[in-house]
Amino acid sequence: MILNQFLVLASLLFALGVYGLLARRNAVAVLLSVELMLAAVNINLVAFEATLRSTFATGQIFSIFVITVAAAEVGIGLGIVLMIFRNRTSGNVDELDLMKW
């Protein structure tokens, strides 16, 4: 297996995640895209781990950390989306422009 096949796959997933992050209007959909990006990162980490075979399986450990943080982040993120939804009864991010000029 060539390392690059994993890396290219991961970069593809990441790019798709970026697209979703920028193009989606619903807040939850944006968060989904973020998850996609994080998944791509995980693939990268594990692929490098497999290549490098470090003593403590560093890549895999970090991958676990990433998963954990992602989970925490989703929890809080959805909590915020809920709060916004309570105030505005709309889940569209393009209406959140109070910081507009």
Binding site: I2, L3, N4, F6, V8, F14, A15, V18, A47, T51
Partner: peptide, 23 residues
């Protein structure tokens, strides 16, 4: 465009850096 740019950059970088390196 942003996505495309990202993909192109990262893939090009990784291909440049690692070439045909095998796991």
């Amino acid at each position: 465009l942003a996505a495309a740019a990202t993909f192109l950059l990262t893939s090009w970088l990784s291909i440049e850096a690692f070439g045909d390196r095998e796991i």
